[in-house]
Design a binder for these strands. Structure first.
Lengths: 338, 338
DNA sequence: GCATACAATGCAAACGTTTGCGTTATCTTG
DNA sequence: CAAGATAACGCAAACGTTTGCATTGTATGC
């Protein structure tokens, strides 16, 4: 049950297999007549090109690797979708790996992808240290980081302006009359979170209001972690009228806790998220949040990767996209007669 | 900036490259001394095996292709995650493709994956016709179908017992006192939906209650489609106390419509889903539903695929897993004094 | 009509591995 | 110590493509 190769076609069509190769790859230095003949024969015999052999000689696989913490995560899955679509458009296919928030695992799959000769790698790092662990590989393997704002590292990345994101959100909350706004779930070890928190703090300062920050000691943002953190937070007196969560996941965890405690959102408390994951627009959730333009992120990520592949000696590219407020139902105007 | 190959190591270590290959692949016919030496040199030179060349001679890539309609879909992304994890465990990597619910696209990516010499393919078909379109490839490429119950087709598949799923759900609703239960979003062109509807109908018959079915003319189940369908349905008088949605997505669409119409769930109407996608357990959603055991499905899918790869002449395997009721907050006991 | 140019095709090497087989060296056995 | 067995390693082919170069055939220019 051997698959039909170029040699089989050559024999059948009475030409050398170089000719077959040229006919199939659309080389100009071949007569139209023989090309037509070869195409006919190869179609008849059901030939499909062997990309492995092709990659062998061309030293190009047409593959790009994608490393995420977990495609289960709605943010990552959406990104993965758009990356695959855009890559497909450009003639590339996708190899998907999950690192499960594990730095060692991250390194392992990176090595595997290199072994598999992918032309480049797109990675959503699990920590701000990731690019350090990967440093030895980064000079030989075109790589672009997604999500983290790695200004000072010698890497290409695409991310949003996280600082501006929280500023935009704060402006909105301020406009609704809120003055006591708690920032929920600030986390160490991520530049993204650093920047978001900074945006919050600066906004407070400019407005002359007191920042209140609820720190998260978890290493990742998830609904579960948000829920746990919210439970301890809400056990204490509530001296704020709005909550700005560091991520949508944390916001949902917070929401879960408030549901249990019969705290009504937005009636008793306004809630704002960040990321605009798919969950946010679900009925009953209807979370007001700051959007990361996933499709644009995905497209720029593969474009800068391809750029890097085709032009390795060029400098590192930094793309910072704009976040956007998505107004839904979890934030309400603070009544003057409080 | 050439990558270091086996030949480079051979030269450096003063052995033939056959010896290097044997040392690296753990062949027994080599002395411990030279193996240690070769390993040391290859480590020092930063060698990484070229899987493409390896695949070339072994005629095995260690790759499995996964085709889904869209990883954006929470059901698919969860599946993709577990498939990747399980495949990784068995030494395989994953190539991910989205078909976007398009049969022609489905065929295209199937061909691409074959070209890329994947050892096998796992596909979540978009329609009950998919395996017909793919028929020419199926005899030469190990494939397993996931989700659809393709009893009569010459394919391997893993799915859940969808018929039993609705039966279980109906039993539960009946136990809560419901007698007027509407089945929401029955769809043509999918065996899965056929079976679920049958389970509903048979349950009605046995209980001596009248089946009520709201048909969907959409070609896929989504929140949006569920929402549209629910709006026209809810414009008519409501002569039922519970709604059994064909899928969680449809249930969420229904929920969105009820939110707008101030119909309270579960107070005014009980709602049951099917699939237990991640959304279902979110706060405020809290959807009672029938679970598809995703991790088990993923594991059996890759196991039967590997089985098929290593033993192509064996018969087709049909794995039918058991669904399970997940009790949450959208169904309530029907008060006797209605 | 002959030299020249160019178009069309064939030959064979190369990509980086694995592996059957042949060769050498070492060991065992009587 | 000779002969046979076995362990360790090298040689070279093979996997299915692409492509530089050589070769052949045909058209062009004078």
């Amino acid at each position: 049950m051997r698959r039909v190769t170029i040699k089989d076609i050559a024999k059948e069509a009475n030409v050398s297999y170089a000719t077959v190769s040229r006919a199939l790859s659309g080389s100009p230095e071949i007569s139209e007549k023989t090309r037509a003949h070869v195409l006919e024969v190869s179609k008849r015999m059901g030939y499909t090109k062997n990309y492995i052999a092709h990659a062998m000689v061309k030293k190009r696989t047409g593959l790009i690797g994608l490393i995420v913490a977990s495609v289960k995560n709605p943010f990552m899955s959406e990104l993965a979708f758009h990356i695959e679509q855009h890559a497909m458009l450009k003639g590339y296919n996708l190899m998907l790996c999950n690192s499960s928030h594990d730095t060692e695992r991250e390194r392992q799959v990176f090595e595997v992808l290199i072994s598999r000769q992918v032309d480049g790698i797109i990675i959503v790092p699990t920590s701000a240290e990731t690019h350090r662990h990967l440093a030895p590989y980064l000079e030989t393997t075109p790589t672009v980081f997604v999500g983290e704002n790695l200004r000072d590292a010698a890497v290409s990345y695409v991310a949003i302006d996280n600082y501006r994101g929280t500023r935009i959100g704060m402006e909105y909350l301020y406009g609704l009359g809120h003055r006591d706004i708690l920032y929920f779930g600030r986390r160490k070890g991520s530049v993204t979170h650093q920047l978001r928190a900074n945006g919050y703090i600066d906004a407070c300062e400019e407005a002359g209001i007191e920042p209140m920050i609820c720190h998260s000691s978890y290493t990742s943002s998830s609904i579960q972690n948000g829920y746990q953190l919210a439970k301890t937070l809400l056990a204490k007196p509530i001296d704020y009228t709005a909550v700005f969560a560091a991520t949508d996941s944390m916001a949902l965890g917070f929401m879960k806790a408030t549901s249990e405690l019969k705290i009504r959102i937005p009636k008793d408390l306004s809630l704002m998220g960040f990321d605009n994951i798919q969950y946010a627009e679900l009925p009953r959730i209807d979370l007001t949040t700051i959007e990361q333009p996933q499709q644009a992120i995905a497209a720029t990520a593969v474009d800068t990767l391809l750029e890097r592949i085709n032009n390795p000696q060029a400098g590192y590219a930094h793309h910072v996209l704009s976040p956007k407020l998505i107004e839904r139902g979890t934030c309400k105007q603070l009544s003057d007669t409080e």
